[in-house]
Amino acid sequence: MSAISREEVANLARLARIEMSDAELDHLSGEMQVILGAVARVQEVASADVPPTSHPIPVNNVVREDAVIPSLSPTDALSGAPASSEQRFKVPQILGEAE
């Protein structure tokens, strides 16, 4: 059973884009330890010969024809935006690089 460190939780919070205070990190590290201890039980029966199930009801090849349907009006599309300008979503400066 792997122990999870506070640093690991901090890294997970970074991956999940959630700012966390020191107190939150401390508290959550403790809880994660307990929860992971409980859920790790799945490994007891998950042997190599058991295939994983990702969809409860197996269905294949669900597709739609390549046809255009009307989009939202730009007003509707932008209706929930915290900020907009020039018919675009206005967001704080993007500092990173795109993929």
Partner: peptide, 19 residues
């Protein structure tokens, strides 16, 4: 089902799925 025209006015080819 949003259209894919190049150079359309901004956010005119969007819907709940692609937003």
């Amino acid at each position: 089902g949003c259209a894919t025209e190049f150079g359309a006015e901004p956010n005119t080819q969007t819907c709940p799925v692609c937003l």
